[in-house]
């Protein structure tokens, strides 16, 4: 049976304000989904809520992993069940070496029942695997000795996220604007890397504005988000239309959702103006 990540009629609020208003999507293992949409349409919120961010409040709907409701699970449980997110802005953890961070993380994800203090993957075995993956991603060995995301350039951070994905081997991966802030070559490399490290074995949700990340990861489905809802789902052609022509046509086709988008943007402005 194909493993699935199923999102049904998902409503999400942050601080009492609705951000997602009924998102439905099913990702099967082995599929590539592209999620596109203008800024503020709720794409990153969807990523965060799938991953279990505590600030997002699910007011309606479900998220199921292979038929099991995971809404009550925290991020740790979701990660150990095989869900991964590459962050748009990864956090720095000063003083903690990338290799140590990953050894711990990899052990936890591969042995989901591991209790704190129990054994980690043997050092030699881990080192070899890490070195292999880094070579594959054309990363310098020195990288493993640096502190997690501390002083990394934008490109280094994104590559570090892909490296983590490669080591954790998730069933489902969400890539939240993994291409943002990267130059053309870096995006190309990232795109190749994702495909190389076994993208075919995962269910992938790629949140992006551009086509380059999709170059080596052709989407089976393209979803367009507007005003907190998925308003259209199509194939690779839809993605092509969006990055060549922008979202105006989508807005014209869905005037009601475009109005909601406008309202949400105005509210955001108002809130930030007060703050």
């Amino acid at each position: 049976m194909t493993e699935t990540l199923k999102i049904k009629n998902l409503h999400v609020a942050v601080g009492g304000k609705p951000i997602l208003t009924g998102v439905t999507m099913t990702i099967r293992r082995g599929e590539v989904h592209a999620l596109m949409g203008p800024n503020g349409s709720g794409k990153s919120t969807l990523a965060g809520v799938i991953m279990g961010h505590p600030n997002y409040e699910v007011t309606e709907g479900t998220i199921e992993l292979n038929g099991k409701d995971i809404l009550e699970w925290d991020a740790t449980e979701r990660a150990r069940a095989g869900i991964f997110m590459a962050f748009q802005r990864p956090m720095a953890i000063p003083g903690v070496k990338m290799a140590d961070f990953l050894r711990h993380a990899t052990t936890n994800v591969r042995k989901p029942d591991r209790k704190e203090g129990e054994q980690l993957i043997p050092m030699r075995e881990f080192r070899k695997e890490l070195r292999d993956k880094m070579t594959q991603l054309r990363m310098d060995e020195e990288f493993a000795r640096r502190y997690v995301n501390d002083g990394f350039s934008g490109g280094e951070m994104k590559r570090a996220e892909i490296l983590q994905m490669a080591m954790l081997r998730p069933k489902f991966a969400i890539l939240d604007e993994t291409d943002s802030g990267l130059d053309v070559d870096a995006v190309k490399l990232a795109s190749q890397s994702i495909a190389e490290i076994g993208g075919a074995d995962m269910g992938i949700l790629i949140i992006t504005h551009h086509d380059r990340l999709l170059e080596h990861n052709t989407p089976d489905f393209t979803h367009v988000m507007l005003g907190g809802r998925i308003v259209e789902t199509g194939g690779v052609d839809l993605a092509r239309e969006l990055y060549t022509e922008g979202y105006d046509k989508v807005r014209q086709r869905h005037p009601e959702d475009a109005a909601v988008e406008k309202e949400m943007a105005a509210e955001k402005k108002f809130v930030s103006g007060v703050a």
């Binding site: 991020a75 990660a79 997110m85 953890i93 000063p94 704190e116």
Partner: peptide, 21 residues
């Protein structure tokens, strides 16, 4: 949250951050 999405428990994450500090 970041550390938890990498399979760390909350408590492990706090300890790691403190150790790093």
């Amino acid at each position: 949250f970041y550390a938890m999405t990498r399979g760390y428990t909350r408590r492990e994450a706090v300890r790691m951050i403190v150790a790093g500090f």
